[in-house]
Amino acid sequence: MTDIALKAGKAPRVRRGALTHGRGLAGLVLVGVVVAAGLLAPLLTPYTPQQQIPGANLLGASGGHPFGTDEVNRDVFTRVLHGVRVDLAVCLLAVPFGALLGGLAGLLAGRSGIADVFTQRAFDVVLAFPPVILGIAVTAVLGPGVLPVVCVVIAAEVPLFGRLVRTATLKVRELPYVDAAETMGASRTWVLRKHVVPNILDAVIVQLALSASVAVFIVSAMNFIGIGVRPPAPSLGGVLADAMGQLGSNNLYAVGPLLVIVVLVLGFQLIAQALLASRRGGAR
């Protein structure tokens, strides 16, 4: 309906350019490399993650095995690459879903007093369980596997996004331009669609990048203490936990997954920081 208006003045994106230089670019490259390596895993190594290579017990790094081999003769590099797939799949599934759920709860909380009290208390309860502890509780019921990990990441994201969206919504609704719109007869839905959502989107996007890094942390932490993906299926945290027992024999066994986790978390953090910086710069 407002097509003409939109075409007449396409709002320049504040975020544009945040990821083409400096921290943003570095973060993007870090994440991109790991994602590409995960996607291309079958092409990058000749082995499968469960394949036991005869005679290759705890070998050090070499051309054939960049991260060496583990205690049951598997190629660590292959297991790490395939582990990336699991970690990223969980993040890409759970983070947006949790953000959506939390965002809706936050919008709902901003609409009525009762809903606000209810959602706020619910968030309080969830936040009282730190993610790892929550993981333990969920695993106690569901048993180890990918499902509890997804549940925990979603549960950890919902209150974060819920609170973010709630406070941002309340803040935007106090602003004179929203008051002006409401005084001239705009409905709540109009205000929500045209003013609130566009103006809180930036904050949500920054939080998405931050949440992705938190999710990588949760997933690998749960796998690390053995309450995530069931072995022998590979995961970054799982490989790292296995490596703990073999620190003396193959150094790169631990360094490999360690490096990948750090690169992923750091990459998402850098992206979030760059987005945040561009947002601040854009808002004068």
Partner: peptide, 8 residues
């Protein structure tokens, strides 16, 4: 609204 043009 900082995101809407003068026309909007």
């Amino acid at each position: 609204d900082p995101r809407r043009t003068v026309l909007e």
